[in-house]
Amino acid sequence: MFETERLTVAPIEDEHLNDLYLVYLSNPDYLRITEGITDGMGVYTRDQMLRDLQVAEWTGRTPLGVIRQEDRKLIGILEYWERSDTDGMPWLGLLMIHRDCQRRGFGREAAERFLRWAAERGWPEVRLGVVEDNRAALSFWRALGFREYETREKRFPAGVKQVICMRYETAS
């Protein structure tokens, strides 16, 4: 799909599924907020992850692996809709990097390149939603230039959550 100096963002291959599962497990705050899981390992199963990937594809989302070029190791996931079923706009559904690789600029690098890729495709904007409790993610997306435009309720396995909807205009 696209590359950066250190990353390739491309479809997830079978050989990457174990690494992808470790990405999810390494982010217990995400699992707590979305899945309601508080004890991590063994509760969010590999089968659940595979189900979630299948549901993503059935609903028109495109899950991509964030792969480190130096060793071809999958270190994250980026998922997007080219056209959301709710408003017809492009949405970035998820960007998650393995905890051991966070705070090294990989997330920012993938996000910035994704936004350039979206602009190259002619998308006027990209939208995303952040669970209100996820303060770190809100700060991350604000720093990249996303702006809030509304708050919605959304049902997750963990229950109903307030989601802050944000947008980034690709053409300035």
Rank of each mutant, 00 (worst) to 15 (best):
V131N: 00
L128M: 14
Y44H: 14
P124Q: 10
D85E: 14
A56T: 07
L144P: 01
R127W: 07
V66Y: 06
D14E: 15
W117C: 02
S26D: 05
R72F: 05
R83K: 15
P90Q: 12
G76T: 05
W117G: 02
E57V: 14
H16F: 12
E148F: 00
D19Y: 04
N27E: 08
Q48P: 00
G65S: 11
K73Q: 14
Y44G: 10
E120V: 04
F146P: 02
D133F: 04
I67S: 10
T38C: 04
L50I: 07
D87M: 07
W58F: 09
Y24L: 08
E57I: 14
R51S: 12
Y149C: 12
R147E: 15
L95A: 06
R32E: 13
Y80I: 00
D100M: 03
L50H: 13
F146I: 03
V23M: 08
V131S: 01
Y21E: 04
A110H: 03
T38Q: 12
T34N: 15
P124G: 13
D133S: 07
Y21W: 08
P90L: 08
A110P: 01
G42Q: 06
Y149K: 04
D47I: 00
Q48H: 08
A110T: 04
W58H: 13
A10K: 08
R147N: 03
Y24H: 11
G65E: 09
L128N: 04
L50E: 15
N18Q: 14
R121V: 04
T8Y: 07
L128F: 04
R121W: 04
R121Q: 14
P11N: 05
M89S: 14
E70T: 09
I33F: 06
R108E: 15
A118T: 06
T45L: 09
W123R: 13
W58A: 14
V126G: 11
G36D: 08
I97G: 09
A119Q: 10
L22F: 07
D52Y: 06
R108L: 05
V23P: 00
E148W: 00
Y30I: 10
L92N: 02
E132H: 11
M41F: 13
T45V: 11
G122I: 11
R147W: 02
R104E: 14
R113S: 02
Y149W: 14
R68F: 08
T45I: 11
L64Y: 12
V55C: 07
Q48C: 00
G122L: 12
N134I: 07
E13S: 10
G93H: 02
A119D: 01
R61G: 07
S26F: 05
R113L: 01
M41N: 05
A56Y: 11
R72L: 03
E120W: 00
I37Y: 05
R61Q: 15
K73D: 00
E82K: 12
R83H: 13
I75E: 02
M89C: 13
R135N: 03
F114E: 01
A110S: 09
T86G: 03
A118I: 02
W91N: 00
M41A: 11
E82Q: 10
G42M: 10
E79A: 11
D52M: 02
I75G: 04
R99F: 03
S26C: 03
F106A: 08
G42I: 09
E35D: 13
A56N: 13
G145C: 06
W58G: 10
E13F: 07
